[in-house]
Simulated assay, not measured.
Amino acid sequence: MKRQLNHLTLAMSGNNKTDTHPSTFILIGIPGLEAAHIWISIPFCVVYLLALVGNCSLLFIIKTDPNLHEPMYLFLCMLSVADLIVCTTAMPKLLSLFWFHDGEIPFEACLIQVFLIHSCSTMESGFFLAMAFDRYVAICNPLRHSAILTHTVIGGMGLVIVLQGTALLVPHPFLLRWLSYCRTNIISHTYCEFMALIKIACAETRIRRAYSLIVAFLTGGVDFILIICSYVLILHTVFRLPSKDARLKTLGTCVSHVSVILVSYTPAFFSFLTHRFGHHVPPHVHIIVANIYLLVPPMLNPIIYGVRTKRIRDRFLRVFCFPKPLN
């Protein structure tokens, strides 16, 4: 803690009127809860380890079982990779800050962190939409499902989502790099986040804020609207089925997807809206919700699909719990 206080003192005294581009930023974690950092790090670390184990296991199971090489599971693999990148980009530095009071992060590394977190989060939203499209085709046009969603189409959709997330978020680090940070280099956050850096800039940021808002709407906002539209069409088809059992069975194939959407979008929208409009929300609430958004969905997504999907659950039990005996 003494080391961190020294960093804060030097930053406050030296950077109020020094370089517009500091060589390092200083992350201070969760303001007001510094004394509890070590305790807060325990659930964060457990959740991160569960996310690593869960997503790596899911990738291994789907890769090694040809019967799972279907559109929904292939999109789920893409989502798992994006989840792993997002949480791994933020967590090692967060744990270093909480355990060793090492809040220093180089300027360039901070910009890379901003890009990876925001671009991969955008890709996650695109993969949710792709999974919703898969459910729409499977339920509303089942006879043509395999003809429409071929491996070539699936790969093309994944590539488009990755390129879109990269292209729209590449300007973010450059927009931040061209700003002046003459007041302070102290970031009141656990990781480098776009709005956290915008708040410590001493230049006009309205254009940058507007660009960030537009990108958020064109990606997460539009994706969410299209997901809702797909489920309206799905429900319209389901309620036309002749029997209650058929309706329940068909809706059951969507439960996992709807669950991961709710788990991911709820903290994402809350974090986005409070950062821009929730000026009376305490800073520690902002930061805790932002960390929940990065950590909890990557942990829960493989659990939800593992529990709800019999084929994944059975494969997991065969591989990890009851392996076949050697001959």
Rank of each mutant, 00 (worst) to 15 (best):
W39G: 08
T184P: 01
F322W: 13
Y73N: 04
A210E: 15
T237W: 08
E204L: 09
L116I: 13
P142H: 02
V319F: 06
G103S: 01
S80R: 07
I112D: 09
D314F: 12
A167I: 09
L5C: 05
D314L: 05
F44W: 12
L49S: 05
S271E: 07
F44C: 09
R276G: 03
V81Q: 01
H275W: 13
E104W: 07
H284R: 02
L76F: 02
G155C: 09
V222Q: 00
I62F: 09
M72Q: 13
L262D: 05
A11T: 02
Y73F: 12
I312C: 00
G29I: 01
L175H: 05
Y136W: 12
A130S: 07
L143Q: 14
C120V: 08
A203R: 11
F25N: 01
N327G: 05
M195L: 15
A109G: 15
T20N: 11
A82F: 04
C229A: 08
F107D: 11
K310W: 13
C254V: 07
K310H: 15
R308K: 10
P92R: 06
S264E: 15
V137K: 06
R276A: 02
S23K: 15
A201T: 12
W39A: 07
G156Q: 05
T250A: 11
Q164M: 09
P283L: 10
G158P: 02
A132Q: 01
V46H: 01
L84N: 08
I85R: 14
P71L: 01
N141L: 02
T20H: 13
F320H: 11
V258C: 08
L300R: 10
F322G: 06
S230K: 04
T88Q: 13
N141S: 10
E34M: 07
F272E: 02
F174G: 08
T89F: 14
D19H: 11
G278E: 02
S264P: 07
G165V: 06
F98E: 00
L175F: 11
S146G: 14
P283R: 13
R208A: 10
P267W: 03
L97N: 00
A51Q: 00
L50K: 10
K93N: 03
Y136S: 11
A51S: 06
F194Q: 00
H279R: 07
C202E: 03
F277I: 08
R240I: 03
S259C: 09
T150R: 05
H37L: 07
T88A: 09
K93A: 11
S80M: 04
A132V: 07
F277Q: 15
Y191Q: 07
L27C: 08
V255S: 05
D134I: 07
